[in-house]
Structure formats: structure tokens, C-alpha cells
Amino acid sequence: MFSEFIQLTVAGLAVGSIYALIALGFVLIYTSVNVVNFAQGDFAMIGAYFMVSLVVGAHLPWWLALIVAVAATGAAGVLFQLLIFQPVRNRSRNFLPVMIATVGASVFLEQLFLLIYGPIPLQLAPIFAVDSVSIAGVHVYPQYLVIIVVTALMVTLLHWFMEHTRLGKQMQATAQDPDTARLMGIRVAWMAALTFAISTALGGLAGLLIAPVYTVTATMGSSIALKAFAAAIVGGFSSMRGAIVGGLGIGLIETYGATYISGSYRDAYPFIVLIIFLIFRPHGLFGEKVSQKV
């Protein structure tokens, strides 16, 4: 009973880490350009497919494949920003068309990869080829531990970058006040590209980490992303801390719910949590209420 609970907690934290990584991407893009990128989850899918291609197709060692796949996903993110996001953004004063365009782009990307890789789900071997490791008498799936550790490393790295480098500070400054940032000599367009690169690379990392647990399909990203989006809202949508706490929380609730309540509604729990939050605490755990200035 107790060991089952520990196993579930580890699994929940692992899934939650994935949500947290994608939620971070949502938050980074939202705080810098004030628009939600609905194609965010598809970069998880892209990352996973890249990883499969590199490991299974090109026989790269997993660590090298991981770095290349994450970097390539980030590059795809920049391409997305330049080709779709920025043109719509420049054309419209309203955010609604931008959002709609990202929805359209998301559908397009999914179908494009379906076309390239075919409808059969692909398998990716876990990084450690062991079925379980025993920690204090509890058997745990090693990939879960990999996910948790890599996510923790990544979050630390991101935190260091944002808080302790000039570039990170310039990114924050641009997000807070782009016009003033330009007056400081910050290349705002580069910052936007960098933001997209980081956000989508985080998504790609999430996708390739979770790939051995699930299978790799064209739609894997959008279902994960919806839950990550819920996590970002629960966290307040404007703070990195909120995205992480929200992601882990949603992961745990989903995993516990699937075991202790009912497995068939596994995908519904995050949304039920979300709706409860929206009704009782719409600005999330760490968010601030912002009112429109007249």
C-alpha cells in the first residue's frame, strides 16, 4: 500500500515534470509577447520524433542525440516564430488572430509529422535498459527518475540563465517593457527569437523524455500541452515558480486520481482541477490580478 503510494508519487512527479517543462514554455512566451502559443505542445512531439530519428535512425549515443534533438527543436521554434507568429503579430493589433493562427499551425504541424512518420506509434527505448530500480525497497521505473533529475537540472540551468546572466536580464527587461528595452539598445527581435528558442527547446526536451514512457505519435504533444496549459494557469501564468508547482501538482493529481478514483477519466482530472481553480481562484497560485489601463 505504502510502496504503491511511493511509486505513484514518483510517477506523478515525473509526469508533472513534463507538464512543468512545457508550462514553463507557455509562461516564457506569454510574459514576453502576451500571447499564448497553442502550438507549444507540438514541439514536444517534434522533439520526440527528432530523438527517435537520431537514436534509432542515426544510431547516435543517447546523450548526443538528446542535445542535438533539443537544439533542433529550438531551431524549429525560431522558424515557427519567424514564419507564422511574427507575421500575424505584425498584422494585427488584436491577440485573437494570433492565437487562432497558432491553433491552425498546431493542427498543421501534427498532420505534417503524421504524414512524414506515418500513423504507427514509434517506440523509443528508455535511457537505462533496466525495468526497475529498487530504492529503499520500493521498485521504481528508472526513466521516471531520469525525467525528474533532468528536469531539475534544466530548471536550475534556466533559473541561473534568467537571474545571473546579462542576456537573461535583457530578456526579462524586454518582456516587462519592450519599448524602453529598445531605448536601452536591446535587440528586441532577437530577444523574441531567443524566447521562442528556449521555450520550444524545453518542450522538445519534455517530449523526448516522456517518449519511452508513452509512445511517439503525432498527437502526443497536444494532449500533454493541454494539461501543461492547465498547470500554467493553476500556477498563475506569469511566474516560472507557478508553472513548476502547477505542473507537478497536476501530474500528481492525475496519477493519484487514475489509480484511486477511475482510470478511464485520467485525462479529465487536470481539467476538473483547472475549472475549480478558475471558479475560485482565477488568478492562480502565484498570479496577480491585472486590470486593463484606460
Binding site: R166, K169, Q170, A173, A181, M184, G185, I186
Partner: peptide, 11 residues
Amino acid sequence: RENLIIGASNR
């Protein structure tokens, strides 16, 4: 401090 550092972004 960070605001001041950002001020030097042009050089």
C-alpha cells in the same frame, strides 16, 4: 542594480 546593468545594453 539590474536596471542599471540593463542601461548598459548598448555597449
